[in-house]
Design a protein around this nucleic acid. Structure first.
Length: 550
DNA sequence: ATAGGGTTAG
């Protein structure tokens, strides 16, 4: 009887030492076999279920993507505590968490500050508006309003719907909350608001800068994005690398900057970022590598794109899609098709984007039969539902091969309403093959879909011109004038001698205008002598093979 | 004692 207090005194700390030991083992565990060993030890020590070990064990399973196992462990816990429920949430995709939260509530397990951010995020993802508002009430009732993690999750949820007023009411806001609001403004296209907010921020970390630069990129302000990046670098230099307010860019920053370079065609800046990325240890980084491949492809240096591709040890579907689409875009169709085979050999499963590149490649080579086989394979072998882009590729493939009738059939059989890109592809084919009937049909649809785009009239007008039908040309010119719309000048940009030069259609502002047009004329003559027929439809739509080039 | 917030490439 006297020994009992002594025993519990010793037994309790021992139990605690064991629990802590397993928690630290689970935290550092990086392989599934190791995890199973640790779990066996936990069971022999009678530590499952256990208030502290079980949540850590379930979380470790989720980290190693053993989500089924994680859920099984939860279901072998008779009275799961709050932390165990939280661990279960982590093992589920976002959409299910709201439902699980209801179960947790029915089981009368109280949520804590770790619970709410996950459930709120789940509501935001599912766009479950009324559930989100109910949750907001529960947060208030249980006194979690002042927790910055919970508050930030709520702001994020509301920002997806365009409302950011909650931020002003937040008692404990930190740099993360500010960043969330910054991204909220950026996602709503409120450029002045996020610029102002960035300047007002009491503290900035790398996410703040990424929010600013990424916000510019998402809103099409590419030059501003590059300016902000330069400002960031200057502040690092002035800060001397220490705590002087300078923030060092990370891989995300570089991805956003490279995306801006691609859109501007600013190859010089893109190359500079490439060198910078390697000098700070991002050589081989998947995100940066993918962005570099895209940048080089969009800036016309496909050789460098291939170099970066070959240097990436770890590749994902984005890597393959970017290089395949880049090659197809540059007319290296057979290389694109060869890499497609390599991709499948490497065990990467193609998706809808891959097939846009593959179908474009077939179009370039006039491989009608192969195009059809790939289209069928996409549906049968990969269960991909063809999107309008794929139908567009097929119409282009048939049209360019001169099979106008089949192209029209294809448009009629499409399960969705054909868009302007589809009709424009058909109209372009009609120009090459001088098919007036289908051209008139295509223009009719184009006028309905985008009455403000005079480029469509120009295309049909060119068909009439080719056939010498001058009366129709004149009639069309009148019709075009009646629409009252002026043609927006097409604009192209190219990086040249440390700056970006803009070219508008019929532009004469450049000091070397004469020499530029002389060279262009020479090139056109050379191309025509090789049987090239310029396709002005894709150019007029700022679209080439489903890619934006401007 | 367990664990958590904001952004990426086509």
């Amino acid at each position: 009887m006297q020994a009992a207090p002594l025993e519990t005194k010793i037994a309790l700390p021992l139990q605690r030492v064991l629990e802590e030991k397993f928690i630290s083992l689970l935290r550092s565990c990086r392989s599934c076999t190791r995890l199973h060993q640790i779990q066996a030890q936990i069971l022999t020590h009678g530590l499952h279920p256990n208030d502290y070990v079980t949540p850590t064990l379930i979380t470790a399973c989720t980290r190693l993507t053993l989500t089924r196992h994680a859920r099984t462990l939860f279901h072998t816990t008779p009275q799961p505590n709050t932390a165990t429920w939280n661990a279960l949430f982590r093992a589920h995709s976002h959409n299910d968490v709201v439902l699980l939260f209801a179960q947790m509530h029915r089981a009368q397990t109280p949520p804590n500050a770790f619970t709410f951010p996950m459930v709120i995020k789940s509501c935001a993802n599912a766009n479950a508006i009324s559930e989100g508002e109910q949750l907001h009430c529960v947060v208030a009732k249980r006194g979690f309003k002042s927790n910055p993690f919970v508050g930030t999750a709520l702001i994020h949820m509301y920002s997806a719907r365009g409302s950011l007023k909650l931020f002003d009411e937040m008692p404990n806001r930190d740099v993360m909350s500010w960043n969330t609001v910054l991204n909220g403004y950026a996602n709503n296209g409120e450029v002045e608001s996020f610029e102002k907010l960035f300047e007002e921020m009491p503290e900035r970390n790398v996410y703040s800068w990424n929010g600013l630069i990424g916000g510019y990129v998402r809103n099409g302000l590419y030059k501003e994005a590059l300016e902000a990046f330069k400002r960031m670098l200057v502040m690092v230099e002035e800060g001397g690398g220490g705590g002087g307010g300078g923030v060092v860019p990370n891989d995300y920053t570089l991805v956003a900057v490279l995306s801006a370079c691609s859109r501007l065609g600013d190859l010089e800046m893109g190359k500079w970022v490439h060198v910078y990325a390697e000098s700070v240890g991002y050589k081989g980084n998947l995100f940066v590598g993918n962005a570099l491949i895209d940048m080089y492809a969009k800036c016309g240096v496909i050789v460098s794109a291939v170099d970066v591709f070959n240097c990436l040890d770890v590749k994902d579907i984005i890597t393959w899609n970017t290089i395949i689409n880049g090659l197809a875009m540059h007319g290296y169709a057979s290389d694109a098709l060869r890499l497609f085979e390599e991709m499948k050999g490497a065990g990467e499963k193609p998706d809808g984007v891959t097939f846009v590149g593959i179908l474009s490649a077939c179009t370039h080579m006039g491989l009608v039969k192969d195009g059809f086989l790939h289209f069928q394979s996409m549906v049968d072998d990969y269960s991909i539902v063809p999107q309008i882009e794929h139908y567009g590729c097929m119409v282009d493939l048939l049209g360019r091969a001169g099979l106008i009738g089949q192209a029209v059939d294809f448009v009629r059989k499409m399960p969705m309403e054909p868009d302007a890109v589809i009709w424009a592809a058909l109209l372009g084919a009609c120009r090459i093959y001088k098919n007036v009937e289908v051209a008139e049909l295509a223009l009719q649809r184009l006028i309905e879909l985008e009455p403000q785009n005079p480029a469509n009239f120009v295309m049909l007008s060119n068909v009439y011109k080719d056939l010498g039908r001058w009366q129709d040309v004149a009639r069309l010119k009148m019709a075009m004038r009646d629409t009252g719309f002026k043609k927006l000048p097409g604009c192209s940009v190219i990086g040249c001698n440390d700056s970006v030069v803009e070219f508008y259609s019929l532009d004469e502002r450049h000091p070397e205008t004469e020499s530029i047009y002389r060279t262009l004329k020479g090139l056109t003559i050379l191309l025509r002598s090789h049987g090239y027929v310029p396709n002005l439809v894709d150019v007029a739509h700022g679209n080439w093979m489903g890619k934006e080039v401007f």
